[in-house]
């Protein structure tokens, strides 16, 4: 599973909308270019929305992996 060298893991499982989105943005702001953020998420709407939001922020979405039914891992590389 260690496909990426994850710098930080953010667990936002079970959080209400839009906490996953906001926490992802806050975590990215604190990180340095080249670092990789792993977001653990079980909320479908945010899993669909976060990739576009972070792309618009200028970061790179490496992959969105469905790790279990309705659970995803989003890998984001900070630019």
């Amino acid at each position: 599973m260690a496909k990426y060298e994850v710098t930080k893991t953010l667990d936002v499982m079970g959080e209400v909308c839009p906490v996953p989105d906001v926490e992802t943005k806050r975590a990215l702001k604190k990180m340095k270019p080249g670092e990789i953020l792993e977001v653990l998420i079980d909320y479908a709407m945010s899993a669909e929305r976060i990739p576009e939001t972070v792309k618009n922020m200028g970061h790179e979405v490496l992959e969105v992996v469905e790790s279990a039914p309705s659970e995803w891992k989003i890998y984001i590389k900070v630019k």
Binding site: M13, G14, E15, V16, V19, Y43, A44, P69, S70, E71
Partner: peptide
């Protein structure tokens, strides 16, 4: 669509907020 899941926030204060 296999999207049903009991979702619970880690911070119990979220229940007070909602």
């Amino acid at each position: 669509s296999k999207e049903f899941k009991l979702r619970m926030p880690k911070n119990p204060m979220t229940y007070v907020q909602v």
